[in-house]
Design a protein around this nucleic acid. Sequence first.
RNA 1: GCGGAUAUGGUGAAGUGGUUAACACAUCUGGCUGUGAACCAGACACGCGUCAGUUCGAUUCUGAUUAUCCGCCCCA
Length: 425
Amino acid sequence: MANYQPQRGTYDAYYEDALNIEKIEGILSSLASVYGYNPIITPMYESTSLFARSAGESSDIVTKEMFNFVDKSGREIALRPELTAGVMRAVVTNKLYATKDLPLKLCYCGPAFRYERPQQGRYRQFTQFGIETVGVNSYLSDVENIMFGYNALQMLGFPHIILKINSIGDEESRNNYRKALKDFFAPKIGCMCDDCKRRFETNPLRILDCKVEEDQEIIKDAPKMSDFLNDFSKEYFNNITTELDNLGVEYELDPTLVRGLDYYSHVVFEYHYISEEGTNLGAIGAGGHYDNLVKEVGGPQLSSVGLAFGVERLNLLLKELSPDTYAKTEIDVYGIAIGEEARVEVYHAMEFLRSNGFACDMSFENKSMGASFKIATRKNAKFALIAGEDEIKNGVFQVKDLKKQEQETVKAEDLAEYLQNKIEF
RNA sequence: GCGGAUAUGGUGAAGUGGUUAACACAUCUGGCUGUGAACCAGACACGCGUCAGUUCGAUUCUGAUUAUCCGCCCCA
């Protein structure tokens, strides 16, 4: 018999985990709807070139982490490494920018794939929830996105979120800065780490991210992005931070924050959370402003801003953070029958209660009372509904409140009403 | 992609180059109960990630492989 394992970097979520993942997605989508975002569902695979163009040919996501293949007709296909590119493609193919009011406010949730070395909170198939605002005409859209993420994390129950934020300026500012960095590092790059040597060629901005100590010494004296922002970029960023101050949002200016996707400009931000146990999964959410993505995939130039959360990371941290509020699988009523005759009656009662909206379950096996109560407890049932010969004869059930350990006799026809009153308290 | 650690039943785990792979919890059966406890008797890995090799013999040694976890890279 073949022995199947889950594919590397994939996982099965069930019971509590699955329940809480759904809950997280539910909280996020309802907040998105409150913020005026409309759902969009796009395919899980697109042509490889879409991602290459959007995420940037030099980005790691494209060069070494893409799940790509050739289909039976010879098409170059890739599983989406992130959802933004596909959403932008959908905006263009459906001409949403012309048929719907700008800015478009879209939200999405679904799996993404990256061929990486798996670790905790980092899977090859993972779920992203994100929002995109396409066609922004005010820095307030940027603020709105940041606020959405901030409030979403509050609602999910994260007490102390670290919001890191930076501006990488518009294209002109960024080009000037990149040039200055190259000039600065050129004489020193020889004695820096191999990663930095590579970054020097592909994306000098990323050198700032380096964690090697000796390199840090050199990086300390590197030119600062903030000195290269042109007036427009400076004002744009200033407007955003001022507004965040007005709204009372705490944030950290992090000049080394540059992000891995090449399409960003102006504001970029990340949400971090470090648990009491010190678990740091990296960013749990991140986003930024981008000016040219819609154009890159064949539409008009539309400035946009968006962000995405890693749903599995949120789930992992929430489980560790608040085991008490972590949702449990539970039911309202567990039915216990004594004897064959009673079983059918209890089953009928189950269906009756279900039709009234109560979550019910029972065993069709002949179990001892003790065993039955154990199962009821394990299923986190609020009540047990018990019946044997005597009850059936009299048309009643025993209803036991499993938490209070109180039991009452209830007429069959009063069951729904009785439970309704009980459960409300 | 690079470096390191780990891999025993449903779970937590102990252990050894050689007759029955400890212990605990959970589960199941029986005793006994129309109310979740306790107690008593019993069952529960033909197997120690997978595949090879060394050996008279390997779960224990060696190699490869797979997976997980940690660090790096990068990222949600």
